[in-house]
């Protein structure tokens, strides 16, 4: 299975471990990821806040570049996925928008491009059976809260591959990897997203509620599929602990990192050293994974 891989800016910078673990896990499941040459911004904030047409034009630029590799595009960043899918939706549904966008981009929009989140690909195209076959080191005893955030499944008509309010694909995958999935209510709550920059206090409150809810439902750690969720929950966890005078200590993994551990990959191969909340105390306690292969 071949995909034109669109990493987006986060996976080349703040979320590099998401990129590393994705590239490590995908080939084991028979997925070939070919990075789109010279990809540009997906059109996410601040572009889509200012001008939706410009945002769609950036998407069309990426689609044109992707077509040289493959018509099926694979994305990991929830925000990139959301933007590219929404652009696709609008372009398919409005000739007027399509014309404007093509003019702005100076490019034609090819109708055959498809955009997939890799979570969708793993869950629905590769399937749980095939994933199960690859599990050599089951995540036994690890209590994981799967956190989907707001962008992955909403707005449902444009992006959803799962139930928009009660998604289960990440739960299914990680359960197949041997983890115990926590039944908790906050899987699609807002983490505060980009208010991290302008209203840190809001993000601290919202992210605190998520961390706290996961903890009270018995989670040892949280799995995410979005770089922004990750940075709010992981990077800011220390300051949240300080502000609310609580000891949370919840490692925040990208779901591909947990898949990789179950497939027997080492911490180094999965970029676990990039996480801010150190996961090794937990992993060693549960007897999962090793730092080096």
């Amino acid at each position: 299975m071949r995909f034109a891989y669109y990493p987006g800016c986060s996976l080349h910078s703040t979320a590099v471990e998401f990129d590393i673990s994705t590239r490590a896990v995908a080939p084991l499941l028979g997925i070939e990821l070919v990075e789109i040459p010279n990809w540009v911004c997906c059109g996410a904030s601040p572009t889509h806040q200012r001008d939706s047409i410009l945002s769609y034009a950036l998407a069309v630029a990426n689609f044109n570049k992707a077509e040289l590799v493959n018509e099926q595009i694979g994305v990991q960043c929830a925000s990139c996925y959301n933007n590219l899918r929404r652009a696709l939706f609008e372009l398919h549904h409005s000739d007027e928008i399509k014309k404007k966008v093509e003019k702005v981009a100076g490019l034609d929009f090819g109708n055959n491009v498809q955009v997939f989140h890799l979570l969708d690909v793993f869950r629905n195209q590769i399937g749980l059976e095939a994933i199960k076959e690859k599990v050599t080191h089951p995540l036994k005893g690890l209590n994981v809260a799967a956190y989907y955030g707001c962008l992955l499944t909403r707005p449902p008509e444009a992006v959803a591959f799962d139930d928009p309010e009660w998604p289960t694909s990440m739960d299914d995958i990680l359960q197949t990897c041997g983890a115990t999935m926590v039944d908790w209510p906050y899987k699609t709550e807002c983490c505060g997203a980009s208010l991290a920059l302008s209203r840190t206090d809001v993000v601290q409150k919202l992210s605190h509620d998520i961390l706290k809810m996961a903890k009270t439902h018995g989670a040892d750690c949280i799995a995410v599929a979005c770089p922004l969720c990750h940075s709010n929950l992981d990077l800011r966890q220390k300051s949240i602990e300080k502000k609310f005078a609580e000891n949370l200590e919840l490692p925040i993994f990208y779901y591909t990192q947990l898949m990789g551990l179950a497939f027997g990959l080492s911490g180094k191969e999965l970029g676990l050293d990039k996480l801010i909340v150190n996961p090794w105390k937990l992993l060693e306690e549960k007897g999962i994974g090793s730092k080096k292969s």
Binding site: D163, E165, W166, T168, D183, P185, T188
Partner: peptide, 11 residues
């Protein structure tokens, strides 16, 4: 038809 997992009916 789709159910409402988020309302916890049955749970």
């Amino acid at each position: 038809l789709e159910g409402y997992g988020e309302y916890g009916y049955g749970k």
